[in-house]
């Protein structure tokens, strides 16, 4: 059934996952080409995070296939996927809170370069410059020596982006990268991610609730509803899709988020 296409970075076929009686992901098909900036939107509980968890190896799925750069990645654990070029961030900020901002990124670089089994070299001096370059890219140079746990929320999210970038991924999956940020900062961070994507020729799949942000950066949008793909297309097509307007955009206007 599946004929994995080499030009696709990510291909998902008939993916399913249930929690007890909840069918969180219900037969999702997805194809993301190289260099795409793909938004996945959908109301709360649509299954976006679950889909991310399945693709990134965090959860086992019930049925379906996932191909990453043409290879099936069924059942591979996260560290292996990370090595193959798949990186992600989490909806709830996930960093190493009691390590300094610099150490956070250094650790990610050390593991990426497979130096993390080295027992006797002082790590302080390893990949320091590379880490500073990455921190510069996300605008955190001044925060480098501080414990990352005391950074403002927005900076922590930037740090997590830097952690994901440290492994030089081909596919970057961002789960609500702007959650909890002020509107201006949201645009800033998405523009940042989009810029990095173009520079490094990497593919980004992200979820987002702020429609302004989505329509500003995404070139294609997938709409998820009750665990299934409801619509897919360019921002214009999706905006005009009657079903989407009914179940999602229309409803969203009424909600507070």
């Amino acid at each position: 059934m599946a004929d994995p296409d080499g030009s696709l970075v990510l291909q998902v076929v008939g993916l399913r996952k249930h929690f007890g009686g909840v069918q969180a992901v219900n037969g999702v098909d997805l194809a993301v080409a190289e260099g795409e900036l793909r938004a996945i939107i959908g109301p709360n509980g649509a299954g976006k995070t679950t889909l991310f968890n399945l693709i990134s190896g965090d959860l086992a799925y019930d049925s379906g296939q996932i191909y990453f750069r043409g290879e099936e990645i069924n059942g591979l654990p996260p560290p292996e996927l990370c090595r193959r070029g798949l990186a992600r961030t989490f909806q709830i900020t996930s960093i190493f809170r009691r390590l300094s901002t610099l150490e956070n990124v250094q650790t990610a670089l050390l593991t990426h370069h497979r130096r993390h089994h080295n027992l006797f070299r002082p790590a302080r001096r390893l990949y320091r410059d590379e880490a500073m370059v990455l921190l510069d890219r996300v605008g955190l140079v001044d925060q480098a020596p501080k414990p990352s746990g005391i950074l403002p929320h927005g900076d922590q999210r930037r740090l997590e982006l830097a952690l994901a970038l440290a492994s030089e991924p081909q596919l970057l999956m961002l789960d609500e990268p702007t959650a909890g940020m002020a509107p201006r900062e949201r645009h800033e961070i998405m523009a940042l991610a989009a810029g990095i994507a173009t520079d490094a020729r990497l593919t980004i799949v992200f979820t987002e609730h702020d429609m302004d942000v989505v329509f500003a950066v995404a070139r294609r949008i997938t709409v998820l509803h009750q665990g299934a793909v409801l619509a897919e297309g360019t921002p214009l097509e999706v905006r005009g899709h009657p079903e989407v307007q009914r179940v999602y955009l229309g409803q969203r206007r009424g909600t507070a988020r």
Binding site: I95, L119, R121
Partner: peptide, 13 residues
């Protein structure tokens, strides 16, 4: 060492 850094990272998260 790098090993120790990764170990602390595991402790944290």
């Amino acid at each position: 060492s790098p090993f120790g850094y990764a170990l602390r990272a595991i402790r944290e998260n």
